[in-house]
Design a protein around this nucleic acid. Structure first.
Length: 471
DNA sequence: ATGTTC
C-alpha cells in the first residue's frame, strides 16, 4: 500500500505499476490521505482504463464513490478511449450557481427570514418533490436538447443569463431519442425542484475578499448578500445513468470483462453505445442547467417582491460531467474526453469559453461548503492546465458516509451549532440535517487553501451562510 | 445523488 511518493506538500504520486497505464496524482495533505485508502485504490483502478492519457488525478476533496472516486479527474483519448457513467456520477451535471444582489446585509438583517421563507414557498424541495408543471413531450425535448436556452425562451429568466452559464447552459450533441421513456416520465415533473441530500439553496454573506481587483470585476463586495443554488439533474440524470449502466452490462460484456471493479463499466467513446450515452448524459446536463435556471427565476421573483430589485446570474458551474476538450498531452494538442466527477473546470485567463466580462481574470469557480460552513468563489488559472486538465476541487468532501453520520451524530447538537452561528435553517427532512452535518464533511477552508496554494485556482471571496433551505 | 437497497 505504501506506493505513495511525496512530490511536494500537496502533491502525491502513485507511480504506474501492474494494471495502471499511467501514473496517478493526489492533491492533498497528509491528513487527507489518511482518510482515503479506498479512494486511492479507486484512482489506481481508473488509471488502468483503456485510452487514459497523461495521469489520473485526485482533488483535495477526494473520497470514495461509485467506481470512480468523487473528486477525481481522468481524460481519455477521443479515438481509442472510453466514456464511463461512473466517471460522471449518478447526478449528472450536479452543479452550483451563484446569484449576486446589490443588497447590503447590515441594512437588511431583519428581512433575511422573510426572503428565505418566500423562496421556500416558490421552490419545491425534498426527495421526490415535483413541480406544479408537467412538461409535454415537445417542450421536454426542447429542454433536454437546449438546456437553459430553452427555458429562458419559455419565460424563465433573461437572455443575458446565458452568457454566465458554463457552456452557455446548452451542451451538444444531446438528442431526446437517446433517453428512455422512464427517464422522460421521471424528468418531466421534477424540473424546477431542488431535491435532497447535499443539495441546498442558501442566502449568503460575502464575508471576506482575497483579491479586490478580481472581486470588483466579479461584482462582489464585502457585506453583500448573494444567493447560492446547489442542485443537479434530479431523478432524470439518475435514470439515465442507471439505464446506460444496464445497457453497457448487456451489450458490452466482452469489452468490460476484465475490469478491476465492476462499477468502472464503460463504453468505447467512439462506439454506438458510447455516443448514445454521451448524448443522453448531455441531455441530463442540459436538464440540470434548465433546473437551476427555473429556480433562479423564482428566486428573482422573491427578491423582487421583497426588495424591489433585480438580481444577476454571477456564474453557473457543473462539477459532474464528461466533456470533449482540447488539451496539451505531452506537447501535442489532443481531443480528449475529460471526466470530472466532483471536480470543477478552472480555465485560466484568455480562454474563449469564459464570459467576456471575466475573461481577463479567468473562469469563475464556485466551491460550495456543506451545511453551516463557508463557500468559496475562486478563479481558474493558467497553471491548472499543467496539473489536471484545468480542474480544481468541488466541495468539502465527505468524511462520514450518510449511514455512518446517522449512527454517530446527534440532531439536537447539529441544530444548536447552527443556531449559535445565527444560521436560519428550513428543512424538509430531519434525516438530511444529520446526514449533511458539518461533522460529516472535511474542512472546506482547508480545501480552498490547498487549491489556492497549489495554484490550480485562486481564492477571490469567502461566503458564509445566513439562511439555508435543505431537502 | 436517488420514487434513499438493481
Amino acid at each position: 500500500m505504501n506506493t505513495l511518493k511525496k512530490i511536494s506538500d500537496y502533491i502525491w504520486k502513485i507511480p504506474k505499476k501492474e494494471k495502471m497505464k499511467v501514473d496517478a496524482y493526489i492533491f492533498t495533505d497528509e491528513e487527507g490521505l489518511k482518510l482515503n485508502s479506498e479512494a486511492l485504490e479507486q484512482i489506481k483502478n481508473v488509471a488502468s482504463l483503456p485510452g487514459i492519457v497523461k495521469a489520473a488525478y485526485g482533488m483535495p476533496d477526494i473520497h470514495w464513490g461509485y467506481g470512480f472516486p468523487i473528486g477525481g479527474v481522468a481524460a481519455f483519448d477521443s479515438e481509442n478511449g472510453i466514456i464511463s457513467p461512473g466517471g460522471v456520477g449518478f447526478d449528472i451535471n450536479c452543479g452550483v450557481r451563484l446569484l449576486t444582489t446589490t443588497i447590503k446585509f447590515d441594512e437588511n438583517k431583519s428581512r433575511i427570514r422573510q426572503l428565505i421563507e418566500k423562496i421556500y414557498n416558490y421552490v419545491p424541495v425534498g426527495v421526490g418533490s415535483t413541480s406544479s408543471k408537467k412538461y409535454n413531450k415537445k417542450d421536454f425535448k426542447k429542454i433536454v436538447e437546449q438546456g437553459a436556452v430553452a427555458v429562458i425562451e419559455m419565460g424563465f429568466g433573461l437572455q443575458e443569463d446565458i452568457e454566465y452559464i458554463e457552456d452557455n447552459g446548452k451542451i451538444m450533441p444531446a438528442s431526446f431519442q437517446d433517453i428512455s421513456p422512464k427517464a422522460f416520465e421521471r424528468g418531466r415533473e421534477e424540473l424546477g425542484t431542488l431535491g435532497s441530500g447535499n443539495h441546498f439553496l442558501e442566502i449568503q454573506l460575502v464575508e471576506r475578499i482575497y483579491n479586490r481587483k478580481i472581486a470588483g470585476l466579479f461584482d462582489l463586495f464585502e457585506g453583500q448578500l448573494v444567493i447560492m443554488i446547489h442542485t443537479g439533474s434530479r431523478g432524470f440524470g439518475h435514470q439515465i445513468a442507471t439505464d446506460y449502466i444496464q445497457l453497457m452490462r448487456t451489450h458490452l460484456k466482452k469489452h468490460n470483462a476484465n475490469l478491476p471493479d465492476k462499477q468502472l463499466i464503460n463504453a468505447p467513446f467512439k462506439s454506438e453505445l458510447g455516443q448514445k450515452y454521451y448524448s443522453a448524459m448531455n441531455c441530463a446536463a442540459n436538464y440540470a442547467f434548465a433546473n437551476r435556471q427555473i429556480i433562479t427565476h423564482y428566486i428573482r421573483k422573491a427578491v423582487r417582491e421583497i426588495f424591489n430589485i433585480d438580481i444577476k446570474v454571477f456564474y453557473d458551474i457543473t462539477h459532474n460531467i464528461a466533456k470533449l476538450e482540447s488539451h496539451n498531452i505531452n506537447g501535442v494538442e489532443k481531443k480528449v474526453i475529460v471526466h470530472r466527477k466532483g471536480a470543477t473546470r478552472a480555465f485560466g485567463p484568455g480562454r474563449p469559453e469564459i464570459p467576456k466580462k471575466y475573461v481577463d481574470a479567468g473562469q469563475p469557480v464556485i466551491i460550495p461548503g456543506d451545511m453551516g460552513t463557508a463557500s468559496y468563489i475562486l478563479v481558474g488559472t493558467k497553471k491548472a492546465e499543467e496539473y489536471a486538465f484545468s480542474s480544481t476541487a468541488h466541495g468539502a468532501g465527505r468524511t462520514l458516509g450518510r449511514r455512518q453520520a446517522m449512527r454517530t451524530l446527534d440532531l439536537a447538537k447539529v441544530l444548536k451549532n447552527l443556531e449559535k452561528k445565527n444560521i436560519i435553517i428550513i428543512s424538509k427532512n430531519k434525516k438530511t440535517i444529520i446526514q449533511e452535518a458539518p461533522d460529516a464533511y472535511k474542512d472546506i477552508d482547508k480545501i480552498a487553501s490547498i487549491v489556492d496554494e497549489l495554484g490550480i485556482s485562486k481564492r477571490v471571496a469567502r461566503l458564509i451562510p445566513l439562511a439555508v433551505i435543505k431537502g
